[in-house]
Design a protein around this nucleic acid. Sequence first.
DNA 1: CAAATATACATAATTTTCTTATGTATAAGT
DNA 2: ACTTATACATAAGAAAATTATGTATATTTG
Lengths: 115, 115
Amino acid sequence: MYICFMSNSKLYKGSLTTIILKLLNENDRMYGYEITQKVKALTKGELNITEGALYPALHKLEAEGLLDVEVAKVDNRLRKYYKLTENGTKETVNKLEELAEYIKTMQALVNPKLA
Amino acid sequence: MYICFMSNSKLYKGSLTTIILKLLNENDRMYGYEITQKVKALTKGELNITEGALYPALHKLEAEGLLDVEVAKVDNRLRKYYKLTENGTKETVNKLEELAEYIKTMQALVNPKLA
DNA sequence: CAAATATACATAATTTTCTTATGTATAAGT
DNA sequence: ACTTATACATAAGAAAATTATGTATATTTG
């Protein structure tokens, strides 16, 4: 099964953390595979997160204290549920502000008439 | 003089090519330093392109045949004027479409209620 | 019932893109 | 004189992804 982080565009580079935090902010707790499926569904197949991108990103967020992990066994298969810590929730707010700022800035650059 | 590509956010990763192409699409020809100043002005200081990011990016676009370069000497100082090739103009359209798509996709992820 | 696909994790080598730090040189402002 | 601005360049390192594997169980399908 071939998975790639994005269709083609390099613009998604640097966006994965924002996406993960936001999804966890909405869904309380999620496991890795669930995140990939949710992203695929929400973007109608536009965005497919690679495992090689996702798992290291989750481990890093955990190491930074933004996520807590809880291991569970479902149907004899391993699942690692992630949820936001208090700091993780704060960081989510920051990341969403950064995204809004990014969009505003880029629009000022590519569409200066509207600025 | 301290210059950094962006305020703080990692979201700008992968955006530099789009920015360069769009500016050249609007201004016919520009030189590197001019691009940094234009970006600073358009974003009101929000975004400052580093030389370490800009010059390699320009060289790469030239190597890919998206930009043509013309060297000039102004006030006894060197300038390298860049302009879009035909392929560069086509690629600019692609990059702008990708940016619009990126924004749409990210909004679907962070604000699913509006999707 | 065998094979393929889906679920679920992980990591390692490599590439891309940027940061940070330098380096060179001239012009202009203080 | 000294600092800042203009104007280019590159090299070492970090960060974040791609691409390619690897392991293992469950489910679907021919």
